[in-house]
Design a protein around this nucleic acid. Structure first.
Length: 194
DNA sequence: TAGGCCATCTGGTCCT
DNA sequence: AGGACCAGATGGCCTA
């Protein structure tokens, strides 16, 4: 889904096989396709890439950032490569959609003041971090009376809390979250009685 | 109009 | 070998 209620975003102009000279008059104008579905096959036309990207970008991407020197893969058949690239694009879109869904779930999970305005990704992550820290502080505050002697609601305790959760996660899977929260709940109730 | 944010494309690298 | 992951590049939309 597009954010900010904007109209359908024009997709990037597609890459095409440089070996296959396209019929240049057939270059479809971008902007008609929606992000869902695989419209990719429709977009196999027009040699945009050379113009848009100056042909060869001597850049590293992820690999260069990690200190590796990138090399081009040997190109097999142009048509086959084209198909692979389009399939890869589709998978990447799906991956990014999943990522965005996760961001949306996170947005809905954390309270924020300006509900009318959609949180950006960086805002979402920052708020989530603060929210987790706040909840941790509250939990540790509730349970501080039950902590071992001499131990207070410090980062050490927060680490213990995290370790406990991770242990449950490994042992019981995702179900463990509710169990863990139940334990904390009863834990805090016990601390209230004492 | 500039800047922020975003979706998408792309190709190299990592992982299974 | 092929898919997942990653990060740079690019262009569109929106807001101040």
């Amino acid at each position: 889904m597009k954010s900010k209620g904007k109209a359908s975003k024009s997709p990037r102009k597609p890459w095409t096989d440089p070996d296959h000279e396209p019929e240049t008059s057939e270059t479809s104008e971008p902007g008609s396709s929606e992000q869902e579905g695989s419209e990719a096959s429709v977009r196999i036309r027009g040699s945009w890439r050379g113009v848009l990207r100056g042909g060869d970008r001597e850049r590293g991407g992820g690999g260069a950032a990690r200190g590796h020197h990138r090399r081009r893969r040997s190109h097999n058949g142009g048509k086959e490569r084209n198909v692979r690239r389009l399939e890869s694009n589709e998978r990447e879109r799906q991956r990014m959609h999943k990522l965005n869904n996760a961001f949306q779930a996170l947005r809905e999970a954390i309270p924020h003041v300006r509900m009318d305005k959609k949180l950006s990704k960086i805002e979402t992550l920052t708020l989530a971090e603060n929210y987790i820290k706040s909840l941790t502080t509250i939990i540790l505050g509730m349970s501080s009376t039950c902590l071992p002697a001499g131990e207070t609601a410090t980062e050490t305790s927060a680490t213990r809390l995290l370790q406990c959760y991770q242990q449950h996660l490994e042992e019981d899977g995702e179900e463990s979250l509710s169990q863990f929260l139940n334990q904390i709940h009863s834990f805090s109730q016990g601390s209230e009685k004492s």
